[in-house]
């Protein structure tokens, strides 16, 4: 494992912790898209079905469990917690995420590495992860104002994607048989989706101003 991959995993982990912290500390999930969180839960459940059949490392297994458990906890809070549920911006979170699920499933059935149950689920999870942030970005754009922790959450999530690209570049040059174009192409698409957010994030950072997205 190289430093970029590890740093990417850590920023991914930090993003989830920031989100849990926001929900726990403020007892509010305003500004957070429940649809994006449910898509991530689906992404992890689909990708990590290999958790009992495939062993890569203790690190991988623990991270898989942490990602599944933390994302399910977030979804549970947003749906089931009496106080948190009330702060959910339901009227702003109207992205039709079922289309994303359907499109990812169709694409996975067409483009995959092997026509097996696990490989198709894996490809599906990769495609779905690439677009899962869309409901969140649309929600932020609609509400205009982005609170501090929500901004940090999306920032760390974007940083994770950027670091994974560096990881692939590193692996491409250091590993003789490195080939994973499905993950790389999807990863590039996913990272590109953050470009607009990052632009305004750095603008607000540079001007020391509150993060605001144009309508």
């Amino acid at each position: 494992m190289n430093i970029f991959r590890f740093a990417g995993d850590m920023t991914h982990l930090i993003s989830i912790l920031v989100l849990l912290l926001k929900i726990y500390a403020t007892k509010s999930c305003s500004g957070i898209s429940r649809k994006t969180q449910e898509l991530y839960a689906l992404v992890f459940l689909a990708r990590y079905v290999d958790i009992f059949t495939e062993f890569i490392s203790v690190y991988n297994t623990i991270m898989k469990i942490v990602f599944i458990a933390s994302t399910l906890a977030i979804v549970w809070c947003m749906r089931g917690h009496r106080v948190v549920r009330r702060s959910y911006d339901k009227e702003l979170d109207t992205f039709r995420h079922y289309f994303l699920i359907a499109a990812s499933l169709v694409l996975a059935l067409l483009v995959h590495e092997k026509f097996t149950f696990q490989e198709i689920l894996w490809a599906f999870s990769i495609y779905l992860e690439a677009v899962a942030i869309l409901p969140q970005l649309v929600l932020l754009q609609r509400s205009g104002n982005v609170d501090n922790l929500t901004g940090q959450y999306v920032f760390f999530l974007g940083a994770y994607r950027g670091l994974y690209i560096l990881n692939w570049i590193y692996r491409y040059f250091t590993e003789p048989h490195f080939s994973r174009w499905i993950a790389c192409v999807s990863g590039l698409v996913q990272t590109a989706l953050y470009a607009d957010f990052f632009y305004y994030y750095f603008l607000s950072w540079k001007n020391n101003a509150k993060l605001k997205l144009p309508a």
Partner: peptide, 10 residues
């Protein structure tokens, strides 16, 4: 060329 993809990334 042997394709290696054991899904070792998260």
């Amino acid at each position: 060329l042997k394709l290696i993809n054991n899904h070792d990334e998260l």
